[in-house]
Design a protein around this nucleic acid. Structure first.
Lengths: 198, 198
DNA sequence: AACTTTTTATGACCTATATCATAATGACCC
DNA sequence: GGGTCATTATGATATAGGTCATAAAAAGTT
């Protein structure tokens, strides 16, 4: 996202996070800019019954959790390392200085936010009005480009667990499993060795 | 949003739209920047069965539909005038020029996108994991600040029709009507003269 | 004032998805 | 190689919210 050379001019700190370690929590105040050097991160919410909703996954070179930095707000969701990860962090005042002094970075931020807003707009409409088959297909098609899944023999490999698919679309695992099977019967996806291809 | 004086330097055109008139359609390519001079606009989707989902309402001084301008993409939703409205429009090349030449506008755009991403993040989690009572209360609380509804005797007046509440939360009108009534019994909202107060 | 349209309202019934229980398979680890 | 945990799987049952029908109040139109 933001070139590392630029970030490093602003007192950046590298930090390692173990798998499942929490990076920041919902409702806490935003104090840093985070960008991924290696590994991957998810942002999520939990409702009162402990049910998870995954806002999105973020991987190498991507940043996450900036909106509250610009809004003087708390985070709308938690951030958690999906695997062992290395992040580079910049404090809020330094980050705002970085933005002000590097106009090219503003454009990068704008494109990045626009991209994520686009994903959320598409998924919001899906989740609220469409049935489970439609929701999952939309997720697959969107995530192929967005997470750049690899094309293999059978098609693009949707590298998500059934649980993750559910948490991204607001469906339960059992429903995801059943829906995927009917999608397979309708030749919308292939299932080989429990892996899903589209 | 962007000061009118600046916009007018870039071959801006003012256009009037009648109530219910379409400003742009989903899947069409983004060619202009739009900002509201007077009136209000909604962005929405329709699914195959004609069911509507409202992405959001936009009112005086706000802009809408910029993300695809930055992404070389088509619109993820339609835009429609909610009432007779006057908009000021700038062509895409002129708009990008405007951004490049006015660094202060970049910051405005970033804050604007961050704000909307925040709303979508909150509502996405609500819609996918919470029940109808929770969803509506969240919508009310969020829209009080976001649409700046006025505080009256009974509380903040939630100036939305039941249908609009449903289209914003992915619920049906009947469900909204029934849920609001139980919320009234639980003293979470007041209903006076069919109007909802929180 | 008569008409049409929109909004709110209520009841009866239905269905997609959630819930709960239970288990097999595969991955990881000591 | 045996134990633990995560993932996939399947069946039985429950339920929140959707669907359909019908209507009355309010708002807007001519």
């Amino acid at each position: 996202m933001i070139p590392i050379e630029i970030i490093e001019k602003y007192d950046a700190v590298r930090r390692f996070y173990k798998k499942s370690e929490i990076i920041f929590e919902k409702d806490s105040f935003a104090t840093h800019y985070y960008q991924i050097i290696s590994g991957s991160v998810k942002m999520n919410n939990f409702n009162d019954e402990g049910r998870e909703f995954i806002q999105g996954f973020f991987t190498v070179h991507q940043c996450f959790g900036e909106p509250p930095l610009f809004l003087e707000r708390t985070y709308p969701a938690n951030a958690e390392a999906v695997e062992d990860s290395e992040l580079i962090c910049v404090s809020k005042p330094n980050f705002l200085k970085l933005i002000a002094e590097n106009p090219s970075v503003s454009i990068i931020m704008i494109k990045n936010l626009a991209q994520r807003l686009h994903y959320k707009s598409v998924m919001a409409a899906e989740i609220s009005t469409e049935d489970s088959e439609h929701r999952l297909l939309q997720l697959f098609d969107y995530s192929i480009t967005y997470f750049n899944f690899k094309k293999e023999q059978e098609g693009f490999h949707i590298d998500l667990t059934r649980q993750q698919m559910g948490d991204l679309t607001g469906l339960r695992v059992e429903t995801v499993i059943r829906t995927i099977k009917t999608l397979e019967k309708k030749s919308e996806v292939k299932i080989v060795n429990r892996k899903v291809y589209r």
